[in-house]
Design a protein around this nucleic acid. Structure first.
Length: 651
RNA sequence: GCCACCGUAGCUCAGGGGUAGAGCACUCGAUUCGUAAUCGAGCGGUCGUCGGUUCAAAUCCGACCGGUGGCUCCA
């Protein structure tokens, strides 16, 4: 092999000869002018790199081009956009300290240490200055430096020096310069600042340095960037749509729930229409649990404080519990319960258990109270009184896998029925934990096997388990992409130990049972919040607070319409009459805005023929006519099937 | 809890040192209507709370309460 050339391999396995020292940019140019123009970075042996870095002999190279559908391409662009942002901020605030500025899902941010937080006007000025930086079209120049040189370069940036000190000895230290701005950075970047054309700063917010609330607070600016104006606009439109379906907004508009200052933050009042949804969800899950061998229990909302000391929760979560209360005099201290596990544990322990009794599955749809920090409260998604569809399974170690499988199967049925997508994470042993490695091995293996058996994809959250056992977490996204905890299935070695739970085995000796905590909805509040956003308020018929609204055309039809409402109610449907002295159009509009699945128009024609003119929500055919009985049967079928749509397929 | 921003009628919002405004909703009246807003009148607010500055505060300042966006946390 000659010293003057190197050969690299393209994705299609063809080999290309290039002069030694050639970079990915030269490769792109050698392949063609189109590719050369579109190139912004390269994947070299699987690693994302600058276009300008020299290639090694034999490297597998793929040119990354300017595409809004390539996550790597966007990653590089947004990382560069973060540098452009910092460049602009440094121009406007020369003394600003710089923290981290990474690309993130959907955008990027950069953290600054400035004396005064950024105002919305500052953001506008920064945005304008970024345009100048982009128009300057400076190249992003990479340079590898020694640790000493890096320390010299960033001597005025304490945050960067702190970061620098953490970079391992053997790792290469690189810096990137664009125009006047120099940053300690691994890269890669797009070739020039001019590449960052379609961007927008979104908001500024405080953020702790290193994500540690004991450290100083920096000012973070969030933004997003794309290669095309269309993709940027589309993204902003998605954010707008998400705001339109925000459960807090729809909760108000559809009269589902309220949070009242006079009651307290994080405490939900369900209005009749929202309570209806709760009731249906509750009946559904209770039914599902019954068929799976669960038994229902009820336990008190307050318990002796000593109970939570024994369970260990008080020590671990005291600041997240409502304060202690005590009656007149010096009676015992009580706490409102933050979870049901200790009470269920005591029910288990209330008598001798045989292996023949296991698994014992206890469930309680129960309200628990947690004093969540004020800044974390968020509509229905983070509240202080939560309704858990809680359940605890006490079983032998051998039964664990089967119980996990059954619980996951139930989760899947619930999610599929509602058409919800979700994500599973298997969270394994954390550093701080109780129980022997042997027990953890078995527990984690049980979870793995159950997940494999159900055949769903799942992610790993290594070290993310609870101190008392590994778990499987189900995660949802809200309307604007924030992720929230949904169902959870957790193994627990702690409580059986602390409460000295036992069962008598076939060997006539006592054994310790395994405890599984699981919630399918997670909390009714959060689950309903996610459903509101998921359906944008247009719930499936079975969950709709109002299923049918009957609209008489004129006063003369009101009596006949009322009779139809009565018949539908007899058939078990939630039907109402809208005989207000408003135009038909007005009442139809109102029914549509309230997302009522079926609006029935009743006039002379219908009353004579014993039919109704049905306007089904979201149906292609605006209106179909059918007999009242036909309609009642068709809708009842929809309800029974928990159908997601309201279409009746007319004739 | 921390940082920033916000708080005017039931809702959405305008106003911005000189005694408070619109649309919708609500009430009443008229209208009796064939598929997304009929017309008119009326009711409704110590401008989040408390304190300060001022001849005068919804407006300026401070604290507190609540909300929003993040950060941190989430059994």
């Amino acid at each position: 092999m000659s010293q003057e050339t190197i050969a690299v391999v393209l994705p299609d396995e063809t080999s290309v000869e290039l002069p030694a020292g050639s970079a990915a940019a030269d490769l792109a140019a050698a392949i063609g002018p189109g590719l050369s123009r579109a190139a912004i970075a390269a994947r070299v042996d699987g690693e994302l790199r600058d276009l300008g870095r020299p290639l090694e002999q034999g490297a597998r190279v793929e040119i990354v081009t300017r595409r809004d559908d390539d996550p790597d391409a966007l990653f590089v662009l947004r990382h560069s956009a973060a540098h452009v942002l910092a460049t602009a901020v440094r121009q406007l605030h020369p003394g600003a300290g710089i923290g981290f500025g990474p690309p993130i899902e959907d955008g990027f941010y950069y953290d600054f240490d400035v004396a005064e937080p950024f105002t919305p006007e500052d953001l506008e000025r920064i945005e304008a200055t970024m345009v100048d930086v982009i128009e300057a079209d400076d190249g992003f120049e990479r340079r590898e430096v020694s640790r000493e040189e890096a320390e010299e370069l960033f001597q005025d940036d304490p945050l960067k020096l702190e970061r620098l000190a953490e970079i391992p000895e053997e790792e290469t230290i690189s810096v990137y310069r664009d125009g006047p701005f120099l940053d300690l950075c691994r890269g890669p970047h797009v070739p020039r600042t001019g590449e960052v054309r379609h961007f927008k700063l979104l908001h500024a917010a405080g953020a702790y340095w290193r994500g540690d609330e004991k450290r100083q607070m920096l000012q973070r600016i969030y933004g997003t960037a794309f290669y095309s104006e269309e993709a940027l606009e589309e993204h902003l439109e998605r954010l707008e749509e998400a705001r339109r379906r925000d459960h807090r907004k729809l909760g108000q508009e559809l009269d589902l729930f309220s949070i009242q200052k006079d009651i307290g933050p994080g405490l939900i009042c369900w209005h009749p229409r929202g309570a209806r949804i709760q009731l249906e969800l509750r009946r559904w899950i209770e039914r599902l649990l019954e068929t799976r061998g669960y038994e229902f229990v009820y336990t008190p909302h307050v318990s002796s404080e000593a109970l939570f000391e024994r369970s260990g929760h008080l020590q671990a979560y005291a600041e997240h519990m409502f304060p202690s209360m005590r009656g007149e005099g010096d009676g015992e201290a009580y706490r409102v319960k933050p979870m049901n596990c200790p009470a269920h544990t005591l029910i288990y322990a209330s008598r001798q258990r045989s292996y023949r009794d296991l698994p014992l599955r206890l469930s309680e749809i129960a309200n628990v109270y947690r004093f969540e920090r004020s800044g974390t409260l968020h509509g229905l998604l983070r509240v202080r009184m939560l309704t858990m569809d809680d359940g605890h399974i006490f079983c032998t170690p051998d039964q664990v896998e089967e119980e996990i499988f059954t619980a996951l199967d139930l989760v899947d049925e619930v999610m599929r029925t509602l058409g919800l997508s979700y994500r599973l994470d298997l969270a394994t042993r954390p550093e701080k934990r109780i129980g022997s490695d042997d027990v953890w091995d078995r527990a984690e293996a049980s979870l793995h096997q159950a997940l494999e058996r159900i055949g769903v994809e799942y992610g790993m959250d290594e070290g993310g388990g609870a101190f008392y056992g590994p778990k499987v977490d189900i995660k949802f996204r809200d309307a604007i992409g924030r992720e929230w905890q949904g169902a959870t299935i957790q193994l627990d070695f702690n409580l059986p130990e602390r409460f000295e739970l036992e069962y008598i085995g076939p060997d006539n000796a006592p054994h310790r049972p395994v405890m599984i905590h699981r919630a399918i909805f997670g909390t009714l509040e959060r689950f309903t919040g996610v459903l509101i956003e998921h359906f944008a308020g247009a719930f499936p018929v079975w969950l709709s607070p109002d299923q049918v609204r009957v609209l008489p055309i004129a006063d003369g039809h009101a009596e006949g319409a009322a009779a139809i409402v009565a018949r539908l109610r007899e058939a078990g449907l939630r039907a109402g009459l809208d005989a207000r002295s408003e135009t038909l159009s007005y009442r139809i509009r109102d029914g549509e805005l309230m997302k009522v699945p079926y609006l029935l128009v009743v006039g002379d024609r219908e009353l004579e023929a014993g039919t109704v003119a049905v306007r089904a929500r979201g149906a292609e055919q605006k209106q179909v006519t059918m007999s009242v009985d036909e309609f009642a049967t068709a809708v009842s079928d929809k309800v029974r099937a928990k159908a997601l749509d309201a279409h009746l397929g007319g004739r």
